[in-house]
């Protein structure tokens, strides 16, 4: 029996379970307050949440508005909150959710204005994406050949093997606390896609792209990895953003507080092997920043006098210094 046949058989033998749905309903055209509507279905545990919602719409309540298309995790249309997690409804089975939570609460995605029920206005999300200029800006030194496709080596392609999987579903954007807190942050997908063009050997705008993003939100990523949990295609946006930060540091580090802090931290540890908290503030924010931080610093110093002490170098600091010598060859950025 093939694996597919075995799976089919396993599904066929599944017992149906009662799945309670609480679905967010809101229609601004009709006014009134958002509310949750309760539905119950008998479903096999492997059934995707989307199938459940479509059965609700088709069999119980034709007024439920939701966005979907392919039902196969390809089109990226059906991202929503499933028990508070940003997920593709078509890729999330009902069974584990009912087991963990006893019910399935469905909300529209976060960080985007709600149009109706589960449908959000994705325009802000697309606008941020477009700001990344997500297309090749050809390197004149490496023009497209006239008589055939341009070629990349497997090693070159390897550098951005994850990002082409992205289906722009916005689950990462919905899950991101930086997007929620600061309109300057372009969002995980926009940055992951930017990374893809920065490392594309055919692209000639690498430096300009890095320069632009350094001062436009790159360093607002919190590296909380909530986007990586939400991403249905294993693009791992938080890791692509990390890669982008390291490239930005290499290319033109130290031009704004974010990279200054990363570089400052790197240099901070080199001298004693352990963190000098006070010195780090100066390294990131300069003397002016240190003065600005003074009132808060004094307030904390009263309870925690250690913050002004320089740490003793660790035992084996020479080993640490030698590791720096071996691997921090390119002396990065201006101090």
């Amino acid at each position: 029996m093939s694996i597919a046949e075995e799976r089919l058989l396993a599904f066929a033998e599944e017992k149906l379970v009662t799945v309670p749905f609480d679905v967010y309903r809101y229609d601004p055209a009709r006014g009134g307050q958002p509310r949750y509507q309760h539905y119950e279905l008998r479903l096999a545990p492997h059934t995707p949440v989307l199938t459940g919602l479509l059965r609700i719409r088709d069999e119980i309540d034709p007024t439920l508005a939701l966005r979907y298309s392919c039902r196969s995790a390809i089109c990226g249309s059906c991202a929503m909150l499933v028990n508070s997690k940003s997920r593709l409804a078509c890729k999330t089975p009902v069974g584990p959710e009912v087991k963990e939570h006893g019910r399935i609460v469905i909300d529209p995605m976060r960080n985007q204005p709600i149009l109706r029920d589960l449908v959000v206005d994705q325009q802000p999300f697309w606008n941020r994406y477009e700001q990344m200029e997500p297309h090749l800006i050809l390197d004149p030194k490496r023009p497209m050949p006239k008589d055939g496709p341009t070629r990349m080596s497997p090693t070159e392609v390897e550098r951005f093997k994850e990002t082409p999987r992205c289906i722009s579903c916005a689950a990462c954007y919905s899950a991101c606390p930086a997007v929620e807190a600061d309109p300057e942050f372009p969002g995980p997908m926009a940055l992951a896609k930017l990374y893809r063009f920065v490392v594309d050997p055919r692209d000639g705008a690498t430096q300009a792209r890095l320069q632009k993003i350094q001062t436009n939100g790159l360093w607002l990523c919190l590296r909380c990895h909530l986007c990586t949990e939400a991403c249905p295609k294993e693009v791992r946006p938080s890791e692509r953003i990390r890669d982008l930060k390291e490239l930005a540091v290499e290319a033109q580090g130290g031009t704004e507080p974010g990279s200054r802090h990363a570089i400052g931290f790197l240099k901070n540890i080199e001298s004693a092997g352990t963190l000098n908290e006070l010195k780090l503030v100066r390294q990131t924010s300069g003397l002016g920043g240190l003065v600005a931080a003074l009132p808060q610093g004094v307030r904390m110093w009263r309870k925690k006098p250690e913050i002004t002490k320089s740490p003793h170098p660790i035992e084996g600091i020479d080993e640490v210094k030698k590791i720096y010598e071996a691997l921090d060859g390119k002396k990065k950025g201006k101090e």
Binding site: E246, V249, G253, I263, F265, I269, G273, L275, I314
Partner: peptide, 14 residues
């Protein structure tokens, strides 16, 4: 002899 873990910041620089 333990040194700092890098706190996520160092990872972004190198």
């Amino acid at each position: 002899s333990f040194s700092c873990c890098g706190s996520g910041f160092m990872d972004e620089a190198n």
